[in-house]
Design a protein around this nucleic acid. Structure first.
Lengths: 150, 150
DNA sequence: GAATCTAGTTCTATTTTAGAACCAGAATCA
DNA sequence: TGATTCTGGTTCTAAAATAGAACTAGATTC
């Protein structure tokens, strides 16, 4: 059967995953953050099948994450650029990156690092803060339902 | 063909997605943060097929995200609890939640809110900071490759 | 002791994904 | 200018992932 959709889910996490949770989507977005724009660049950089890339790019454009614009090199081709909505996925990518760095490499394995453009120092770790600036651990938070209950 | 694996990718984002990027995985983790522990609870809460849930839970245990422990109610059953590695996915979930809240609801639609347990105020937005405390936008960061180049 | 609940397993049907082959229009080369 | 190559796809097949129903053994409750 068709994969179950979360598009109309109550939970924002589920809706996000419905929009950008299929295989390849976030890697395409990651590449877009790294300046990749053209179909062939994505294809070669990711090693993805062309047919798959075609449908993923179409889906991401439909989802409002990417825009299809005239190529910036003046050619008759087009290129894919992040929309505002797409750029706002930056934190998702950074969170995935930090978790991966922390848990998915052996001691002796090197990995790339996200640094700030000016100082070239690694960015600091993401943290959840309360409205009044306290650091919050996962068990110091709660979900309040839409209706205000719980 | 078998879906392409990113387990040995250089990029931490790709490795993360390989580990927790398949359909349902992060929703199971989200439920675990909400205190869901038992097989039947996950199954009913998510509306997932039992067979799918079985393989996802097995994968997450294999990945070190969940642990299978004796049920806390004293029965002979068992329950799934987040490991340290799993708890560290909190930021990923929060980032997905905030993006979804911002971009995937109509004006008139309500959604649940993440609040701090004490004050019951919504948590503040995630932000990327430089080592010296400046807020960084996506285009104020760079990726430095593992070998130190670029 | 019987009925029900829990946590699965197994099966089939459909959808997704990977990969190769093909193709038309744009750009480059000679 | 014409031939060749590059770009950005489309189409096809085969294998894997997912959904859902049916079934089951052991634990718990009635």
């Amino acid at each position: 059967m068709k994969r179950k959709s979360f598009r109309e889910a109550e939970c924002p996490v589920a809706r996000s995953l419905d929009a950008i949770g299929d295989w390849w989507s976030l890697l395409i977005v990651r590449d877009a953050f790294d300046g990749i724009k053209r179909f062939s660049e994505f294809q070669q950089n990711l090693g993805i099948a062309k047919g798959m890339l075609t449908t993923r790019l179409r889906d991401l454009v439909e989802a409002g994450v990417l825009n299809l614009a005239p190529a910036s090199d003046g050619s008759a081709y087009r290129e894919y650029v992040l929309t505002d909505k797409g750029r706002n996925l930056f934190l998702v990518i950074v969170a995935l990156r930090q978790w991966g760095e922390d848990h998915l490499y052996r001691e002796d394995e090197k990995h790339s690092v996200l640094v700030d453009a000016d100082e070239r120092n690694p960015v600091s770790r993401l943290t959840v803060y309360s409205a009044d600036g306290r650091q919050l651990a996962w068990d110091e938070t709660r979900i309040v339902a839409a209706n205000g209950a719980q």
